[in-house]
Design a binder for these strands. Structure first.
Lengths: 196, 196
DNA sequence: TGGCTAGCCTAACGATCGTTAGTTAGGGCG
DNA sequence: CGCCCTAACTAACGATCGTTAGGCTAGCCA
């Protein structure tokens, strides 16, 4: 574990603690203790507690967005106009980001409620836009008959909830490597959608 | 909204606030303010803040357990030995409890982390046992060929995450009645499992 | 050698936390 | 009337919260 910058180290342990005890359940002094430092010392690197939360959530959101961008480009290059391929790529990319840093991703999934009104609104907008990408691909697949009829909004929301559930039990040192987990989630997601 | 007892009213507003801001993010005085009462006044009805959380979580857990009991008996009466019927009944019962009191159910789903060590352990045990009921039915279905091969543990956990996601967007005054939502979730869950 | 910088320290601020103690107001009932 | 019960009150406790201010130290570079 190389420590790139002090600021990064703070966000790393904050992610861990926010995930375990929540934002409100974690004090500045808790974060400092994990770094063997006094609470007040953190303010040399950070302007407020909420700024730390926002940095984590914003970075996680950006990771999900960038991974989805790349996944859609890749899928289009491999099998142009294939909604099943595109959707599977989205799910696989999502699992990859989720498992690459479970702490960060869990904070993104659960702790956005603790953000102030403007940051909260901003992240909800981005979350909606992200969910719309999934929904759009489902609609594409329904239009060409690849996917069975269903409510695309509910399906997108349900699949994202299902995939995010991985954050609750994934263990980087566990039995299953991240890619096998992604295989399972892609499989289960596609079964929900594909026409029999 | 009939107020059965003062204690019940406290747990109701506590469920609402815990769901919105989390346990740690909600103070005793916040709960009291929602009841137009001083913070200290609550201690005539309650012994501690955590006791309130435990009461909510324990009651919600009991509701899910009782609904699953009934669902399994019903399914067995309707179509004895049919794993698909049994599993569908479990999912439908889960959605019914979830939508009957979203606040309470959301607190159960998200805030068990805030419980003390012994309550936390107890609720995790019950959650595991509950999840095992879903997993067991999946294994039954796989054994007789009704359900397609998959990892039953991952499937159970994923389906429960998917269904719990409903707590994030269900609106009792919304467009979709709870039973139509249950229809969707049963449909999506069964598609994940059924052999094509 | 001297200064710059990064990183940490101690001390303290006002606010808020969960909780306890003791008291008061009002309604039902003997 | 007097009694009790329910439900609220005010006041305060010690602890902890996020945050600010100001000072110290060790390493690097000129």
């Amino acid at each position: 574990m190389v420590e790139l910058s002090r600021r990064q180290a703070i966000e790393d342990v904050a992610s861990d603690l926010f995930r375990e005890h929540g934002y409100a359940g974690t004090s500045i002094r808790d974060i400092a203790r994990a770094l063997s430092v006094q609470g007040a010392s953190l303010y040399a690197h950070v302007t407020s507690k909420e700024e730390v939360l926002w940095a984590i959530v914003d970075r996680a959101a950006a990771r999900f967005e960038a991974a989805a961008d790349l996944a859609e480009v890749d899928a289009e290059a491999r099998r142009p106009g294939d909604p099943a391929e595109a959707f599977a790529a989205l799910v696989r990319a999502h699992v990859a980001v989720l498992t690459a840093d479970v702490d960060e991703a869990s904070v993104f999934v659960h702790e956005w409620r603790a953000l102030g009104p403007e940051h909260r609104r901003a992240i909800l907008e981005r979350r909606d836009a992200y969910q719309d990408r999934f929904r759009g691909r489902i609609e594409d697949g329904m239009a060409v008959g690849t996917f069975a009829m269903t409510d695309p909004s509910i399906a997108a929301s349900t699949i994202l909830s299902a995939v995010n559930g991985v954050a609750g039990w994934y263990d980087p040192n566990g039995r299953l490597p991240a890619e096998r987990i992604a295989d399972h989630l892609v499989d289960l997601s596609m079964r929900m959608l594909l026409n029999a």
